[in-house]
Simulated assay, not measured.
Amino acid sequence: MGRVTSTDRRAALRAGAGLVAGGAFAAACSPSGTPSGSPSGSSSGSPSGSFSGAAVHHAPAPTSPAPASRAPARPLAAPAPRAFPGQPAQIAHGPRDHARVALTFHGQGEPAVAHALLGEAERHGAQVTVLAVGTWLDAHPDLARRVLDGGHDLGNHTQRHLDVNAMSEAEAGAEITGCAERLRRLTGSIGTWFRPSRATRASPLVETLARRAGYPHVLSYDVDSLDFTSPGAPAVARNVLGGIRNGSVVSLHFGYPDTVAALPAVLDELDRRGLRAVTATELFS
């Protein structure tokens, strides 16, 4: 896919800043709404990596209104979860000897933001992984088709995006299977991956329940953008680019204007470094 110039991209996406800034954004993946601590290998707001900054673009959004949410008109043939021999039950990163990375988005928030982020990724020829919240799919079922039609992975981020690790076995099981059932109804599959809500890693109980629900692996990450803390788009770009390397899995979110504004700079820099953004499934294949 040919690269769109920064000038073209800014002209196309400038109108989105006001739309995104006024939206209702997703809850942070931390029980208190503040970071619960970065996993090993993740970066902080001032990473020590060689990346010193990026020309962060204004938050993009579609130049025309996002389509009204409605159920898909036809069933989708979505891929099912698969096991990766030799990989642990909880996977934080892929092989370090291939120049590929996975950008993973927690699916919740305003549909216009999701459309803007997916569109920007596709303009760069990037594919991403979306871990969807069940209530978000209930409200915006058309987004399941949008993700899959774009060639992206679609997975499970629990039904209500609560602290699943703190729940009883019955409650946690219902959170996992509730979202899985919605994914199956919309796409014919329970989704390619499971990630616990409000936690970097699943507890042993949640890991067991996810496997019981049909997910051979829990998808964690080794780079945390901290975009849910709304640190500003330049900080989001630094957090990602300061920690990312071959095989990295990056945690990002739909629903935050900083993420939308930072993504063009992140993708431009990945291109410069020769790092290809692929789905999590491709990363581990």
Results as ranks from 00 to 15, higher is better:
Trp136Asn: 13
Ser248Asp: 04
Ala180Glu: 04
Pro216Thr: 08
Ala126Lys: 02
Leu252Glu: 01
Pro234Val: 14
Pro95Asp: 09
Val260Tyr: 01
Gln127Thr: 14
Ala166Gly: 12
Ser251Trp: 04
Gly191Thr: 00
Gly41Ser: 13
Val278Asp: 01
Gly33Lys: 04
Pro196Thr: 01
Ser285Cys: 08
Trp193Val: 07
Val266Trp: 08
Phe25Asp: 01
Val147Pro: 02
Thr5Arg: 12
His57Lys: 07
Gly243Lys: 02
Gly214Arg: 12
Ser30Lys: 08
Leu270Thr: 02
Leu252Lys: 01
Leu263Val: 03
Ala202Gln: 05
Asp138Arg: 11
Asp271Thr: 09
Leu263Ile: 07
Ala166Ser: 12
Pro65Ala: 14
Ser220Leu: 03
Gln87Pro: 01
Gly155Pro: 06
Arg10Tyr: 11
Arg9Ala: 15
Leu13His: 03
Pro81Gln: 09
Gly107Ser: 11
Val130Leu: 15
Glu169His: 12
Ala78Arg: 01
Gly109Trp: 14
Ala126Val: 02
Leu117Thr: 05
Thr281Val: 08
Ser220Gln: 06
Pro216Asp: 14
Ala210Arg: 00
Asn156His: 10
Leu205Asn: 07
Leu219Ser: 09
Ala21Asn: 07
Ile190Asn: 02
Asp268Gln: 09
Gln127Phe: 01
Asp224Leu: 10
Ala233Tyr: 00
Pro60Trp: 00
Ala213Ser: 15
Gly119His: 01
Ala261Pro: 13
Pro216Gly: 06
Ala132Leu: 15
Thr7Met: 14
Ala235Phe: 00
Ala26Thr: 12
Val240Arg: 03
Ser64Phe: 14
Glu110Lys: 13
Ser50Lys: 10
Val266Glu: 03
Gly150Ile: 04
Pro216Glu: 11
Ser168Asn: 12
Asp142Glu: 15
Gln159Ser: 10
Ala144Cys: 07
Arg185Val: 01
Ala172Arg: 02
Pro67Gly: 12
Val223Phe: 05
Ala68Leu: 12
His57Thr: 04
Pro204Tyr: 13
Arg3Lys: 14
Trp193Asn: 08
Ala126Cys: 15
Ala132Ser: 13
Pro257Tyr: 15
Ser189Cys: 03
Ser46Glu: 15
Glu207His: 06
Val56Arg: 13
Ala12Arg: 14
Ser189Ile: 06
Gln127Glu: 08
Thr229Val: 06
Pro204Asn: 05
Ser189Trp: 00
Thr187Pro: 01
Ala15Tyr: 07
Asn239Cys: 11
Arg185Ser: 08
Leu118Glu: 03
Glu169Ser: 14
